[in-house]
Simulated scan of single mutants.
Amino acid sequence: MIDTPGHWTVRHFSQANPAGSGCDSVPALLRRLADSIDALGPVEIQDVVISSEMTEHGPWRSGTVYYRLPGDE
């Protein structure tokens, strides 16, 4: 018999660097994401995905954070 997992909640949010000069800064994006994670309080991070979109200023960085709150099942 195979035990199949149930379901669970995974929340997420996405952020990007401001458009224009500096939109390609990975350190700035990581600081922005870290500040938002800190503001959530105690969470369990499931994954962080960094993406790029090409613009006239270079790659425009964005990130999506997937997380669970302590009471999520």
Rank of each mutant, 00 (worst) to 15 (best):
R61L: 15
M54F: 05
H12V: 00
I45K: 04
P5V: 07
I45T: 08
P42T: 14
T9C: 05
I45C: 03
A34E: 13
P70V: 06
F13S: 10
W60I: 01
I50R: 12
Y67I: 07
R11D: 02
S21A: 13
I2Y: 02
G63T: 06
L40R: 13
Y67T: 06
T4M: 10
D35I: 01
C23V: 04
D72K: 04
P70W: 04
R32M: 11
Y66Q: 13
G63H: 05
P59W: 06
V10K: 02
G6F: 03
D24T: 02
H57M: 08
T55M: 10
F13D: 04
E53H: 09
P42D: 14
S36T: 04
P70H: 03
P5Y: 00
A16P: 00
T4K: 11
P27T: 12
W60G: 02
D24H: 14
S25D: 15
M1S: 07
S21N: 04
W8T: 09
P59N: 12
H12P: 00
S51R: 14
Y66I: 03
A16F: 10
S21Q: 09
G71Y: 03
A19R: 11
A34M: 04
Y66K: 11
V10P: 00
T55E: 08
L30T: 13
H57R: 01
V26W: 04
S14R: 13
E56I: 06
R32L: 15
I2Q: 01
N17F: 11
A16Y: 08
T9N: 11
I37G: 00
G20R: 08
Q15G: 02
L40A: 03
Y67A: 02
R68Q: 15
T55G: 03
A39E: 13
I50S: 03
D47I: 00
D24C: 03
P42C: 02
P18I: 03
V43N: 05
P27R: 06
R31P: 00
Y66G: 02
R68E: 07
R11P: 02
L30K: 12
D47H: 13
C23L: 07
G71N: 14
T64I: 11
L33T: 06
L69G: 10
S62H: 03
